[in-house]
């Protein structure tokens, strides 16, 4: 992961999606109008968030099986990266909702589910903060991470599909299926998804390295003393 071709690729793809997302031609749809461009920014952020949380949970499982501290650091770092992306996703969604639904928070099940899943990860950080013993912290937070992920799945993927929602992609609202017909949008959307996922991974790995360095500095200070 140290090689940097994929980092350059991430920057290029995200830059491309910014330029393309703001300048390219988009289909004119009633009510949505120009806000359809939010698709290029908002949706890839969620995809990337889910990817980060999956990685975080994967590392939590690895930690429980092998008991290596690196996995714990990776798990917490990717959770942090995922939360940052999730916050960005919520804010961009709120901007979009402000123009199409009339208010930033409209009690939409998808919006609420997203907010609750962020709460789960805030609780995860609080749990990490409240335990001082290193090994116990790692083990308990890994358990909570896996459990929270399992509990989050119905919240994001199942319940919103059961409720009526104004969110695009459900209940007769224009969603992906309609956009999918438009290849011009796909040209920007897929690169944007890949770019954001790579960007998230980059953030996660940077956090991992930062934490490792901090740990080493701490150990060195201890030995000097």
């Amino acid at each position: 992961m140290r090689s940097y071709w994929w980092k350059i690729l991430a920057v290029l793809l995200v830059t491309y999606s910014f330029v393309g997302g703001l300048l390219f031609e988009v289909p004119r749809l009633f009510i949505l109008n120009e806000t359809i461009r939010a698709l290029y920014f908002h949706v890839p952020m969620w995809f990337s968030m889910v990817a980060m949380f999956v990685t975080s949970t994967y590392h939590a499982i690895v930690y429980l099986r092998k008991n290596n501290p690196e996995a714990d650091i990776a798990s917490s770092s990717f959770a942090e990266a995922g939360v940052v992306l999730g916050m960005l996703g919520i804010f961009t969604g709120m901007i979009w909702a402000n123009y199409t639904w009339g208010s930033p928070w409209d009690g939409d099940p998808k919006q609420n589910g997203a907010a609750i899943s962020l709460l789960v990860y805030f609780a995860y950080f609080i749990l990490r903060g409240s335990i001082s013993n290193h090994e116990q912290k790692a083990r308990l937070s890994a358990v909570y991470n896996i459990f929270a992920f399992v509990a989050m799945v119905p919240l994001i993927f199942i319940i919103p599909r059961m409720m009526s929602s104004m969110h695009p992609g459900s209940g007769g609202n224009p969603g992906f299926n309609m956009y999918d017909l438009d290849s011009r949008m796909r040209m920007v959307f897929y690169p944007a998804v890949i770019g954001w996922i790579l960007l998230g991974t980059w953030m996660g790995t940077l956090l991992v390295r930062y934490k490792n360095v901090k740990e080493k500095v701490y150990e060195l200070e201890e030995t000097v003393r």
């Binding site: 899943s117 609780a123 749990l127 409240s130 116990q136 919240l155």
Partner: peptide, 18 residues
């Protein structure tokens, strides 16, 4: 994690919401 009741409420709320 040191028997805190607050932690219990914070941890469990998001999990049982669904």
């Amino acid at each position: 994690a040191n028997n805190s009741n607050v932690l219990m409420a914070v941890l469990s709320f998001p999990v049982v919401v669904s």
